[in-house]
Write a protein that binds this DNA or RNA. Structure first.
Lengths: 193, 193
DNA sequence: TCTCACATGTAACTAGTTACATGATTGC
DNA sequence: GCAATCATGTAACTAGTTACATGTGAGA
């Protein structure tokens, strides 16, 4: 009944109470659990979770800022999250626009394709560097808890390692494709437009 | 104006004329360009591409089967595909349910979490094996064209290598997470339901 | 006759994006 | 007064999934 997005929000709230605004900030930058949503999707979803009694909220007045609704998970919410985390999951179909483009890049002129792939490689290397930095922070802060998979610190570390592996793989692949295009003479295909 | 799905279809049709049914078969099993769609999305999209003159079709009668509409790309379609393949592309947010679940798996009991991750590892190793098999076929069939990035064979090979790298990375990560859970005593967290 | 693979579509719904809308409070 | 950040929402649209619907022709 609860959507994947709902579980993403529960997963954040199971670690600490947050407002819709806080959640939006975490999910827009994708730092958290490698899911993504905009505030326009988050606010209605929080209302649904609240209606289903999986979360509750309190309005917190602030001196220097507008009041906010701070949400926390209920016992029912924790149970649902717990159950969902290891429920059967099929292989999900990959939908990756970068790979899709590579599939038709044999039509492109080789210099433009090489430049495109080198640029993509850089974007992913930058993201990789951000993740590596965050990983170093985590490892410095609390190395003991990172070995205990029943702590949220371990779970954060695990998702981060996944992100690092993913970005490294994409970046290397982009480099490999770029190299193939760079080995070709610049005008080996005719540009049309 | 044309959607990513539209370019996915153009990318397939740029290699060979296909019916909606053929495309659905390719995209359901995800063998092709690592995109995915159902026939209910494909048929209307083909109609839109045809309205935009990016593809054209002919009704082909068959002796032993019902007639089909065979689509092929037009010149305009090839130009659009060519242009799109190397147009600027931002980092796309990752939305991966497996990683999302790992983010909340610190709540789960360790034996269930370990079993879940070992099962996921196996699913991805199986997929990896399928890709490796297809890769071996490609390498055996036409090793020369696989080094020339202006051939569709190279593009297929590139997407396949991307899939192989992706699946290997996920499988290894699943194994690493599973190991962490396996090192813990079985009842270290209380199951709730 | 019935099931299966081939073949093409539409309808109803869920998920996600972009744009619109409002209001509080702080600092310039 | 004005822009920026904090804070919460709704509306309109696009993308994608699930279910419904129809029909051909082959083989059991």
């Amino acid at each position: 009944m609860t959507s994947t997005l709902g579980f993403a929000l529960l997963g954040l709230l199971a670690r600490q109470p947050l407002s819709g605004y806080d959640i939006a900030a975490l999910l827009e930058h994708g730092v958290g659990p490698f899911w993504h949503a905009r505030h326009s999707q988050i606010y209605p979803e929080l209302a649904r979770l609240e209606a289903a009694r999986l979360v509750s909220f309190q309005v917190v007045e602030q001196r220097d800022r507008p009041a906010k609704k701070v949400y926390e998970v209920t016992g029912i919410g924790v149970d649902a999250l717990h159950e969902w985390s290891t429920a059967p999951l099929d292989l999900e179909p990959i939908r990756d626009e970068l790979t899709l483009r590579a599939y038709s890049m044999w039509l492109a002129d080789t210099d433009r394709a090489a430049a495109f792939m080198r640029h993509q490689e850089q974007l992913h290397r930058d993201q990789l560097a951000r993740y590596e930095g965050y990983r170093a922070e985590l490892e410095a802060a609390d190395p003991v808890r990172l070995t205990d998979p029943t702590t949220p610190e371990f779970a954060t570390y695990a998702t981060l390692r996944r992100g690092i592996g993913f970005e490294r793989e994409v970046a290397d692949w982009c480099g490999w494709v770029a190299e193939a295009f760079e080995r070709m003479p610049a005008d080996s295909t005719a540009a049309a437009t």
